[in-house]
Simulated assay, not measured.
Amino acid sequence: MSELIQQFFNVDIMRQAFPYLMSGLFVTITLTAVLAPLGFACGLGLAVMSEARPAGVRWLVRAWVNVFRTMPPLVLIVITFSALPFLGIRLPAIICAVIALLLNNTAYYCEIIRAGLGSVSPGQMEAARSTGLGYKDSLRYVVLPQALRNVLPDLVSNTIEVVKATSLASIVGVYDLLYSASTIRSVTFNTSALTLAAIIYLTILLPAVRLSGRLERRPKTV
């Protein structure tokens, strides 16, 4: 038991590792602050396009979503980081990670918002149009607010997944929370830094998980 505590809960190593983990946490938060709003905005645009009348547009959106929902984000990161130099495009590892993760989480945001649009009764659009609003204004001011409210728990849950997915950027050397903890482990041959990283993730994400649970119990708009 003492060996287990020494290997995973060494307080002295945790204390020394803490400043380095905070630097990694800043990168993790920065990645999330970029990926979550961009992913939501792009997903919203694709979800609206998926409701467009031209069948070709709907087909392209659904093909995009199916491809990037199917591809594991780790594979996307490795492909983006490895393939772009062969095209003459050399980007920092963190930018490659952002591009890959954005492709992935945009597809998930799109599906969530599209489900929200489908949850709103068609009568809401008809009622809005009957007041003289055009299609775009009816969608913007009447349908979308209800749709987003209906899928708010899923949007929060997906944002939590975005935070966790940022840890995959460490595979290409992005100095995030996981990478800093893994580096310290390789130097100290002790897992306590990873334990502390897990505690930090838990501290950040547990309130969001509880919020998502509370939102799921709210009644939906029909």
Rank of each mutant, 00 (worst) to 15 (best):
S2M: 15
E3Q: 10
L4Y: 15
L4V: 15
F8K: 03
F9M: 10
F9I: 09
V11N: 11
I13M: 13
P19S: 00
L21Q: 03
L21G: 03
L25M: 07
L25C: 04
V27N: 03
I29W: 02
L31M: 10
L31N: 02
V34N: 02
P37D: 07
P37L: 02
F40P: 05
G43K: 04
G45M: 00
L46V: 06
E51R: 14
A52D: 05
P54I: 03
P54A: 06
P54N: 09
V57S: 01
L60E: 06
V61W: 09
A63Q: 00
N66M: 08
V67E: 12
F68R: 09
R69D: 12
P73S: 13
I77Q: 09
I77L: 13
V78K: 10
V78L: 15
I79R: 11
I79F: 15
T80V: 15
S82K: 10
A83Y: 15
L84F: 15
P85I: 06
L87Y: 11
I89F: 10
R90M: 09
A93N: 02
I94A: 11
I94N: 01
I94P: 03
V98N: 13
V98A: 15
L101F: 07
L103W: 01
A107P: 00
A107Y: 00
Y108G: 02
C110I: 14
C110F: 10
I112G: 07
I113W: 13
G116V: 10
P122T: 13
P122C: 08
E126F: 03
E126G: 12
A127D: 08
A127G: 14
R129D: 10
G132E: 04
G134P: 08
G134A: 05
K136W: 14
K136R: 14
D137V: 14
S138A: 15
L139S: 11
L139T: 13
Y141R: 11
Y141G: 05
Y141M: 13
V142E: 12
V142D: 07
V142Y: 12
L144D: 13
P145K: 09
Q146A: 13
A147M: 07
R149I: 04
N150M: 13
V151H: 06
V151K: 12
L155E: 04
L155T: 04
V156E: 06
S157N: 07
E161I: 11
E161H: 09
V163P: 02
A165E: 13
T166G: 00
T166D: 01
S167K: 02
S167C: 07
L168N: 04
A169D: 06
A169G: 09
S170E: 06
I171R: 03
V172A: 04
G173C: 00
S180P: 04
A181F: 14
S182V: 12
S182G: 12
I184T: 01
V187G: 09
F189E: 03
F189T: 00
N190E: 01
A193Y: 01
L196D: 05
A197W: 12
I199Q: 00
I200D: 02
Y201R: 06
I204A: 04
A208E: 08
A208H: 01
V209E: 05
L211D: 13
L211A: 14
S212W: 01
R214Y: 01
E216L: 03
E216F: 00
R217M: 00
R217T: 01
R217A: 05
T221I: 11
T221E: 14
V222W: 11
